[in-house]
Amino acid sequence: MNWEAFWLTVRLASLVSVVLLVIGIPIAYWIASSRWRWKFLVEAAVALPIVLPPTVLGFYVLVALGSRSPLGRWWESLTGHTLAFTFEGLVIGSLLYSLPFAVQPFAAAFGAVDPRLLRASASLGQSPVQTFRRVVIPLSTAGLVTGFTLSFAHTLGEFGVVLMVGGNIPGVTRTVSIDIYDRVQDAQYASANQTALVLLVISFVLLAIVYGVNRRAGMVGPWR
């Protein structure tokens, strides 16, 4: 069991899911409430990482982070090194990669809040921001937990994007899934199995949380 790779992965997944919670909520709220006619294009773009091969996503992220792109140059002038093959670059790639896994459950939860409650809240003197905080967020907790957990679990298991953007630098960009791949290449099956099993169990627990949360949300009754 490569603990260095394990903690690196947990650190990456935690950071990505927290950042996605922060930037995903406004994006999701916009998707849930906007009536812009071209909104579907934004929705399609957000969903892209679900269907794109990770190598395609990783390739473009790598290009965007490299010293030939404006973003890459800007970062280089700021820090003195490029984003490619760094932990920060990995975070950016993972954010894009896991974006739909956070935004879609958020948007579904926000969209499911009865608009009449928002009208009632306004007529009780509450501003849109207060209404969002006091009505929309509390009624969307299951969706928020789902999006947070799914983006965490999804980042935990990513492989292609990490390999493209981060390479395989121990302690910097070597995540658990890459570690497993390395060990299989070296025919260290026992050790690969150990790590793979840990990942399997964690992923199962996380998904169990997601389904558990949504099961309770669907059952409103006198016992609550």
Partner: peptide
């Protein structure tokens, strides 16, 4: 609406 003080 939220500044009108009208109950609905």
């Amino acid at each position: 609406a939220w500044k009108r003080h009208i109950g609905y």
